[in-house]
Design a protein around this nucleic acid. Structure first.
Lengths: 221, 221
DNA sequence: TTGGCATGCTTTGGATCCAAAAACAACCTA
DNA sequence: TAGGTTGTTTTTGGATCCAAAGCATGCCAA
């Protein structure tokens, strides 16, 4: 589901497995990751596990403390808010870099993802499709560093996005769909300025909703 | 908790040494980093070197290709331009997050750095002090992820900033000093809005100058 | 009972050795 | 002579073993 470079290396394979587990919520924030456990569970020795943990640390998915091991970072409301403010600034840039290179086939693909979202989905599937939707709008962005930053931001906030969705249910679906449709409409018109603005509003509104629900951050594990 | 400055881990030590070398320009973009050479030069076996390279990869200072090793990334003009556009968006955010927490002692420190810059310095020293100046304006920003992103952007563009300075000499010094003074003045007034604006202009003008000098990028091969 | 310290157990960090993949070079063939 | 191919060398990736740093438990003393 996530980008598949299929780096056939063993450490990349372990990193991918851990990444999926963390993004799926199977490993909660604050949880410690013992190298030996992972090595035994996923096969291989501890060395590729260490490399995998470094890879994930670079993506913001784990946090490594010297001599103390790795754990999934547990963020406070202020940190998540800042991450969303970063998204508000970076993602419109990624969108503008992307839009010039999007074909109408790309736009059709985006529209199709949105169509599937509107067919009504559960929380898990919504998280996957919503991410697919936005990433699809960035496929025209050829800059690796920018896209890596965007992915980092999505990764770091994924758990709290899920917690929020699980809490509020799909009541917000109508608003999100309206925002997505406005964004797509501006993209169809090839109006970069409008598209950036709609995207900014979309992220900003989500941020404001998130900070209104501090109960998301109480460790419910 | 007092000292413990010794992130005495061997891999951190090696990473620090390599980081210094790369930022100082002793290792040029495109140059390959052989693990065994580094291990021999800095002491230790190849394993902590591998960890160090992963750390640096997370900071954008090296690029790791599976089974092909690590090299200092060599960027084209378009990539550097995008990195500057990212700076234009992220650093004003970091500044606004920082300003509320800056004491007048902090502001005095910033002013002192600027004073040293204006005393006339060579290119190498300017690069160090200019970086110190901007980082000092961000010291109030407590968000680790945001600061990490900012540092990444500075690291990735450091070589091209040096190439630009070496090429154009210090003719630009007056403009930079004026921009720094405007920024400091807004910060002294505690005017976040103005400070963000001046910073944005500062970065944007630098970007436009950079793209006018494509010869900076030809030094590869 | 409680505070502090010492000892063990667990977990991570590092070194050496071995296997696999890629770069390089020389060779053979058309 | 040029191009592809194969064999060698170099370099990275992975496994096992050993050392050091944390953490917990339990003991001793006040």
């Amino acid at each position: 589901m996530s980008d598949a470079p299929a780096e056939s290396a063993a450490s990349s394979r372990i990193a991918q497995a851990l990444r999926d587990d963390i993004l799926k919520g199977l490993i909660a924030p604050g949880q410690r990751l013992r190298q030996e456990d992972i090595a035994e569970r996923l096969g291989g020795s501890r060395l590729p596990v260490r490399e995998a943990l470094r890879i994930l640390a670079a993506e913001g998915l784990v946090q490594i403390e010297p001599n103390k091991g790795a754990r999934v970072p547990s963020l406070d409301p202020g940190e998540v808010e800042t991450l969303y403010r970063m998204r508000e600034r970076l993602e419109p840039l990624a969108l503008s870099e992307s839009m010039a290179n999007l074909s109408s086939a790309d736009l059709a693909e985006i529209s199709d993802i949105q169509r599937r979202i509107e067919q009504g989905v559960d929380v898990t599937e919504f998280l996957i499709l919503d991410r697919e939707f936005h990433m699809a709008t960035y496929t025209g962005c050829s800059d690796e560093q920018l896209m890596l930053s965007v992915v980092r931001l999505w990764n770091s906030t994924q758990h709290y996005r899920r917690a929020f969705m699980s809490l509020t249910g799909s009541g917000r679906a109508q608003i999100v769909n309206a925002e997505h449709r406005l964004l797509m409409e501006a993209m169809d018109r090839r109006d970069t300025e409008d598209a950036e603005l709609y995207l900014l509003g979309h992220i900003r509104r989500t941020r404001k909703e998130l900070v209104r629900h501090p109960e998301i951050f109480s460790t419910g594990s």
